[in-house]
Design a protein around this nucleic acid. Structure first.
Lengths: 142, 142
DNA sequence: TCATAGATTATAATTATTCTAAACTGTTGA
DNA sequence: TCAACAGTTTAGAATAATTATAATCTATGA
């Protein structure tokens, strides 16, 4: 999904009916320069702010999951409080600011490529995620 | 915490009252060769199986959190379903088997050291976690 | 236009986790 | 040794994120 796309067509192409809600959520998520890191709640809030209308929470959940299944979104494991999603679906890693609870994408050159030397027999690697937890220098050491 | 330790003394040393429940949970967690990866539910089940008695779930939560705060346990972010904990508190990484929902420790030589080249101004790095998701070769590509 | 499969919705249900307040227990010091 | 108190445990209630349900609605293809 790229900026200023014909979301209706894109949705149809990938087998999702382009409903009003889905198209609008696409606009909120993908009409932007930088990648967007969000929780369901963030998104629901953004929808009601930006569009001045409120979709059912269930719709937000359904849509985000549909988008994730179609590969428009990536889910990022941070903790068990809530799920975080990322509009950047390329293979990349994250900083997580434990003070602000914000996610920041790593650039390609922030980190060497992760090289896994061991294979688990009969298993293939689905993903490799690095999470770098950071916090203010002058506070909780964890 | 090491195998066959005097848990009562160890608990006291770190400022935790060695109650019956805490000592028994120590035994379940730390009297073993290999590291133990578990969810709260796993642990609660193991307690009732191994010890043939049932501690209040709240106690299991309290104890696990106390142990985590004292550095006996590490929490591992996998998904938002539940929290996973690890008795191996050294800096290390994980494979996560998406078929069996099992965690497997990476050995030091499974992975190169992660070298982070970028700093976030004013922030210090608390931890660097790598999670390698694996799954059976002949099924869901995610 | 119509039938229908697929979506949306409000709400209920579920699940993991945290809170609460009462009862209980380790520890300290007289 | 024992009273007193702070720290723990406990059952159950409360909370929060998420999923399920079932009725209504809508995009789509005939």
């Amino acid at each position: 999904m790229t900026k200023n796309f014909n979301f209706t067509e894109k949705l149809r192409e990938t087998g999702l009916r382009p409903t009003k809600q889905r198209v609008k959520i696409c606009e909120v998520l993908f009409n932007r320069e930088k990648t967007f890191h969000f929780t369901i709640n963030d998104l629901a809030k953004k929808i009601s702010e930006d569009l001045n209308e409120k979709f059912s929470l269930a719709t937000v959940y359904n849509t985000v999951h549909a988008f994730k299944d179609k590969g428009y979104l990536k889910e990022i494991a941070i903790n068990s409080d809530k799920s975080y999603f990322d509009t950047n679906t390329s293979s990349h890693h994250h900083f997580y600011d434990e003070d602000t609870h914000e996610l920041i994408d790593c650039n390609k050159d922030d980190l060497d490529t992760i090289n896994i030397k061991k294979n688990i027999t009969g298993k293939k690697i689905n993903s490799v995620e690095v999470l770098i937890r950071v916090a203010s220098d002058n506070q909780n050491q964890n």
